[in-house]
Simulated assay, not measured.
Amino acid sequence: MDLAAARAALPGITRAALGELISIRPMREGKMKQSPDETRTVLVDLPARVDIWPDLVQMGGGREKPTVSLAQGEHATASIVRRAGDWEPRQGDHVLRGAAKGAGLFRITRTGEDGDGRMMLYLSAAAS
């Protein structure tokens, strides 16, 4: 396997070894609070790599790279693979972690790119 192929395979291998399954509940803004968005289905059992306080931990020596400053209240990220036919998560949607990883509920504060076919979700704690 050449280096380019190894780098391309690494996110999937990492997600399989260290990842978890999450669900994303679509939400819509209301006058006073958010409510479930009935026009989009809940995405269940999405393989993801969730990192709590990602700026505090770096795996391996790696190359130096500038870090993205997290907005106030953001303390977690989730990297997911885009799947054909699914809607894309957006700001305000809720991410639910499984019980094995603490069963946390998070709100997506913004989204970003995370390489080929993946997207990054920036998360803050959400009230249930």
Score class of each variant (00 low, 15 high):
residue 70 L to A: 09
residue 63 R to C: 06
residue 45 D to T: 12
residue 39 T to S: 13
residue 62 G to L: 01
residue 51 D to E: 09
residue 60 G to C: 02
residue 45 D to M: 08
residue 69 S to T: 11
residue 27 M to T: 15
residue 61 G to I: 03
residue 25 R to W: 08
residue 73 G to R: 08
residue 46 L to A: 04
residue 37 D to Y: 06
residue 32 M to D: 15
residue 55 D to L: 08
residue 26 P to V: 10
residue 54 P to K: 00
residue 60 G to Y: 01
residue 34 Q to H: 12
residue 25 R to K: 14
residue 37 D to H: 11
residue 68 V to P: 02
residue 76 A to C: 06
residue 20 E to A: 15
residue 41 T to K: 13
residue 26 P to A: 10
residue 32 M to E: 13
residue 35 S to C: 09
residue 74 E to W: 05
residue 59 M to Y: 04
residue 33 K to Y: 07
residue 65 K to Y: 04
residue 61 G to A: 08
residue 54 P to Y: 00
residue 53 W to Y: 06
residue 34 Q to N: 14
residue 69 S to H: 07
residue 34 Q to E: 11
residue 37 D to F: 05
residue 54 P to F: 00
residue 42 V to F: 03
residue 55 D to M: 05
residue 61 G to V: 05
residue 34 Q to A: 14
residue 61 G to L: 03
residue 51 D to F: 00
residue 68 V to L: 05
residue 18 L to V: 11
residue 76 A to T: 04
residue 45 D to H: 10
residue 49 R to F: 01
residue 36 P to I: 09
residue 62 G to Y: 00
residue 30 G to E: 06
residue 74 E to Y: 06
residue 58 Q to E: 06
residue 19 G to S: 05
residue 66 P to F: 00
residue 23 S to I: 02
residue 21 L to V: 08
residue 50 V to R: 00
residue 49 R to M: 04
residue 50 V to F: 01
residue 74 E to L: 09
residue 39 T to F: 04
residue 56 L to G: 04
residue 41 T to C: 08
residue 20 E to W: 05
residue 31 K to N: 14
residue 53 W to A: 14
residue 53 W to M: 08
residue 57 V to N: 04
residue 71 A to I: 06
residue 37 D to I: 10
residue 20 E to V: 14
residue 71 A to H: 08
residue 67 T to K: 03
residue 52 I to W: 00
residue 64 E to N: 13
residue 24 I to S: 02
residue 23 S to T: 12
residue 28 R to D: 11
residue 48 A to N: 02
residue 23 S to P: 09
residue 60 G to S: 04
residue 25 R to P: 05
residue 22 I to M: 04
residue 68 V to D: 07
residue 31 K to R: 14
residue 56 L to K: 05
residue 44 V to R: 13
residue 69 S to K: 10
residue 46 L to P: 02
residue 24 I to P: 01
residue 38 E to W: 06
residue 70 L to H: 09
residue 75 H to W: 04
residue 32 M to W: 07
residue 45 D to A: 14
residue 76 A to Y: 01
residue 55 D to P: 02
residue 59 M to E: 06
residue 59 M to H: 09
residue 29 E to F: 08
residue 64 E to C: 10
residue 56 L to H: 03
residue 56 L to C: 04
residue 67 T to H: 02
residue 30 G to A: 08
residue 72 Q to S: 12
residue 19 G to R: 00
residue 44 V to A: 11
residue 30 G to F: 03
residue 44 V to S: 11
residue 38 E to F: 07
residue 32 M to G: 15
residue 48 A to L: 01
residue 59 M to R: 10
residue 76 A to L: 02
residue 23 S to L: 03
residue 45 D to Y: 05
residue 55 D to K: 09
residue 19 G to Y: 00
residue 58 Q to A: 10
residue 37 D to G: 14
residue 73 G to A: 07
residue 33 K to G: 15
